[in-house]
Simulated scan of single mutants.
Amino acid sequence: MLDLTIDDPMRAALPVDERAMLAALSDPSALTTRDDAPARAAIARDWAALGVSIDPARIVLAAGRDSALARAIATLCEPHEEIITLTPRVAAIARLAGVHVAQVPLARAEHGFELDVAAIYDAISDRTRAIVLSAPHEPTGVVLTEDTHEALVALGVPLIVDESRARYVLDAPEDRVSSVLARPLETLAIASSCFEIAPALELAWLGVGGPAHDVEDAVAKLDATAATHGAIASPLLAAVPRLLESASATRDAITARIRRNLDALRARVPDGARIEGGWLACLRYRNENAGAHARPGVLYDLSSDWVVVSLLTEPATFDAGLDELLA
């Protein structure tokens, strides 16, 4: 069975400097000190590549991507209050915390999907405390644009945006916004990201933007949630600067891989859904008995004739798997 679901770069036959990563995790200073200032400064530099200028004091470390989102939700919501989200993954995290979820699907567009700000507006209630989305959206790859960013901010509801795949841009429009924090904010926004190269390390972070008094309050609450959601271990904390320094070649290889596989998908399905960013792709399959494994679209609130494939897949496997799915 051909596997088109692998979305961990460490398992995708990509060049990874494992020696440098292991050396970073062996820093003896982690045995005697726990200073997160170098890690926050390194993350601020990493975010600068996305056009984000952020004070390291507005960055909070978290023990994994899901934990980061859970902490952001807990910061803005009490149990029995509500979030609006477009992502089933986020809905599951919120419900575990007792937070109500109003789930809004993406709208179908001529060349794929689009963010429906009007539907989000209609879902706002007296209990709404945050709008939570991923950019790029998973699995459709829809990115934030200038217009959608402005429209979301104008709703006046705090935003939580998972930007874990934000550096991987494919068919994005020219007015793409690289991060919710990259534009002026009149309302509170929390962006989450992670060390996407090695998910098993469970290294993630949150950045906070918006009005100064709201930011200070949110950062303080995020720091307080570490007691219930866990903090990252000292060796990993000390390793952050060197881990990020070692990431460049692998990130370039990821970009090349997903671009190559997207081109292969486009050659077979030229009128398929537009993929603006990230490393997942949605397609309608034709062969129910295919010898290839893809994620069912229903896991992402898509109809049953959709499947989701990983653009990280090794090229020969990806090509053969597409041939099976589309036979």
Results as ranks from 00 to 15, higher is better:
residue 286 R to H: 10
residue 148 T to S: 12
residue 187 T to P: 04
residue 130 A to I: 02
residue 142 V to Y: 01
residue 97 A to R: 15
residue 208 V to K: 05
residue 142 V to P: 09
residue 308 V to E: 02
residue 163 E to G: 10
residue 254 I to M: 12
residue 71 R to T: 06
residue 210 G to Y: 04
residue 267 A to I: 13
residue 246 S to A: 15
residue 249 A to Q: 15
residue 210 G to E: 07
residue 49 A to D: 11
residue 308 V to N: 06
residue 324 E to Q: 13
residue 12 A to R: 04
residue 181 L to F: 13
residue 318 F to E: 04
residue 105 P to L: 05
residue 154 A to C: 11
residue 208 V to Q: 06
residue 136 P to G: 04
residue 231 A to W: 08
residue 123 A to I: 04
residue 37 A to M: 00
residue 119 A to F: 07
residue 95 R to E: 10
residue 312 L to Y: 09
residue 309 V to Y: 01
residue 70 A to Y: 06
residue 123 A to S: 10
residue 278 G to K: 00
residue 78 E to T: 15
residue 43 I to Q: 10
residue 264 A to L: 14
residue 293 H to Y: 15
residue 235 P to L: 05
residue 184 P to G: 08
residue 170 L to I: 00
residue 226 A to L: 07
residue 305 D to F: 08
residue 26 S to Y: 09
residue 305 D to R: 01
residue 94 A to T: 11
residue 303 S to G: 05
residue 114 E to N: 11
residue 158 P to H: 06
residue 191 A to Q: 13
residue 268 R to L: 13
residue 298 V to G: 07
residue 176 R to P: 02
residue 316 A to S: 14
residue 171 D to V: 01
residue 235 P to G: 02
residue 149 H to R: 11
residue 64 G to I: 04
residue 52 V to R: 08
residue 226 A to G: 08
residue 14 L to D: 01
residue 295 R to W: 09
residue 309 V to I: 12
residue 63 A to C: 02
residue 289 N to H: 15
